[in-house]
Nucleic acid binder design. Structure first.
Lengths: 195, 195
DNA sequence: GTAGATACATACCATCCGGTATGTTTTATG
DNA sequence: CATAAAACATACCGGATGGTATGTATCTAC
């Protein structure tokens, strides 16, 4: 079992993430955060040496979780099919499942949230964001490349642009869903787009 | 010609928008803003009665400009063709032109920026954002509906979902372009998606 | 030209902010 | 059970923040 300290640290991270997705990073003060947690300044600064440290830790965790989820999902997809197109469709299906299971107050993407106030963060934090996007792009491009090799499209395509398009659709859906309430359909819509 | 006061007011709005797109709304203080403008507190609070007033005015202007641009572009498209599909493609082309003309430090969308710290704003400000998205969705849905009537698709589609998909792609492209530098290709990519 | 409105500047304030110094309690370990 | 480290609490600080009160210059209209 996790020690008391680690548990508190996790609680801080979780609550901070919730609040940042609603108010933005600069819009969340440490005072507000610890008040909601029922903690004190001493407790917070015992776990994080600054607010920027919290921001870095938070986005690193988010990015790492995202990478792991992608790896696991891709592994599952590869186990279920040898065909790259089928793998891609399964992959999307798995993500669809996850987002369909989420309750109404739609969370949003922490990466996008950070990007919107990029200049607020130090270089290291910004680097984490960039790496995450480049990584996603690379993996998606690889998959799409495999698909277009096996199923030569009638029009010539740019796998990188297609990967970007997919990611854009993904991130944009978060924005819409937040302002309109629900847009999970969009994720499902992607499947129609593929051919 | 605009009076001196109106000019200053416009300068405040323009500079504020620039700064908010880089630092987020909460990340921009009035002190920082007026310092960059070479103004004083008195000047600012003469033009806006609070920071929230600035936020509201700013997003209203942005939304109104967006609506007008859409109307003008659609009118131009309708003048150039009677076919709804062609109109849609021309419309996209016009937007593509605009974004292709922008210089490297990619601005971003103020609406998306606000959405990321939605709880920071009063109900009226949030309402402006919601209305803007609903309006865009309605207009796009109408257009797509006309297209699918004239060119019955081989799979049955949901015009609303397609409109959402388009908007998502649009908004998401802003995020990617901001974190990776350039993604205007994505806009062009949309054209391939249509058929 | 002068009265009033508009457009700014100056000085100030209460509160909040991130951060620190220092204390107290709890927990793990020998 | 003693002890030290870890986990938290309390109290405080300098500066930033949004906002106000009040003054002054500039412009406009009669």
């Amino acid at each position: 079992m996790a020690s008391k300290g680690e548990e508190t640290r996790k609680r801080i991270l979780d609550t901070a993430q919730d609040m940042i997705l609603d108010h933005g990073y600069a819009g969340v003060s440490i005072d507000q955060l610890i008040k909601r947690l029922g903690l004190t300044k001493g407790a917070f600064f015992h776990h994080f040496k600054s607010k920027g440290d919290l921001a870095r830790t938070l986005i690193r965790r988010y990015a790492d979780d995202g990478v792991q989820l992608f790896k696991e999902s891709l592994a599952r997809a590869k186990k279920l099919s040898d065909d790259p197109l089928q793998q891609f469709l399964i992959l999307i299906g798995l993500y669809e499942e996850i987002f369909a299971g989420l309750t109404e107050p739609y969370p949003g993407c922490l990466l996008a949230s950070y990007v919107m106030e990029m200049q607020q963060f130090d270089v290291e934090t910004r680097e984490i964001i960039n790496i995450e996007f480049y990584l996603s792009r690379r993996e998606l491009t690889k998959l799409i490349g495999q698909i277009s090799e096996k199923y030569p499209p009638n029009i010539d395509i740019d796998p990188v642009a297609l990967a970007d398009g997919f990611m854009s659709l993904f991130e944009g859906a978060f924005i819409l869903s937040k302002s309109l309430g629900e847009a999970r359909i969009t994720v499902q819509q992607i499947r129609n787009y593929k051919n």
